[in-house]
Amino acid sequence: MKSKKRIIGVLPVGDVPELAPKVIAAHIVGYLKLAAEILTPLELPAAALDEIHRQYNAATILSGFNSIPFDHYDKVIGVFNVDLFIPTFAYVFGEARQGGKHALVSLFRLTGGNEGRHPPSAILWERAAKVALHELGHLYNLLHCVEKNCLMHYSGGLADLDDIPFYFCRYCNTYFKDALGRP
């Protein structure tokens, strides 16, 4: 059976550097051979702001995305430049529900590390693309992988994230193909 055309929507939310969604879309096309489109930016959802911590609740944002019809898109990745958290966790680089439709990527904490200085932009884009591909993996039902050289391996810190190459291990790759209905 011929698989239907899958398009991934990359949605900038709030004040996001213009290059960020472009880089993410390019990596989706390049590494996953999926079509990607950059959507019209949205405003930051005020309801998701936690006034005390000055962070945005990723779980609330994901719930909010459910009410937006992104019918044309198989999956949608929201790109943020604010600090995201989920309840009980201090922060997250990205968030997605297993097998869900929407994922979030935050650039906020990706600029850290590098001995207190802002990292070169190439590193920042690389990190953002890795988080996006990882979260997209979750949207296609991939679990965290034990293989340390796999994009689905969990990275809790920037050092871990930088160590991971742009590569899905054999197992995750097979799983991805299966999820995308590819031979």
């Binding site: 779980a59 989920i86 309840p87 009980t88 966790f89 997605a96 297993q98 979750h138 679990l143 969990y154």
Partner: peptide, 27 residues
């Protein structure tokens, strides 16, 4: 196989949901 059977016991739904999704992603 490192997969476990986990129970989240918390009276706050938001915490239960958050941890539920976190551990689900780990398989």
């Amino acid at each position: 196989d490192d997969k476990m059977t986990i129970m989240i016991v918390d009276d706050e739904k938001i915490v239960r949901e958050s941890l539920f999704h976190w551990f689900t992603k780990l398989g």
